[in-house]
Amino acid sequence: MNIDKVIAGFFIILAMTVNFGFFYGDMGDMELHSKYELFAAIIVNIIATLLKLGDRTQMGSVLLATSLVAVIQLVIAASVWTIFGYETISREVFGIVVSLSGGALLANITSVMLYISETVKSKR
């Protein structure tokens, strides 16, 4: 067991679960999507990305790429939310925010799948 790998795995999976937590629920219903959950998703995703930095293997590069996609999608979602008036946001714009986070969720799922497949292949 390696403490680095525990931390990395923890954040990679947490990034996906928190992202899912924000995404889950009716697309247009603002009450079902907490802004705090989006904030947490962004932070956890950034940390997961940073943890993947500096790994020059093929797997490390692909993992970093998926995380970057997730971070960018989530940051854009948060920016859209802020730009279009925060509290007084319309249903359509909110739809954009949620679907952007949905895209980030896909990237996170890919990331987790890659992570698990690598673990399964590993003999140690």
Partner: peptide
Amino acid sequence: LWLVLHKMKVPFLAIVI
């Protein structure tokens, strides 16, 4: 690029946290 990323990992984490 990798050199920068590798050495900046911990400072970036400190900032985020």
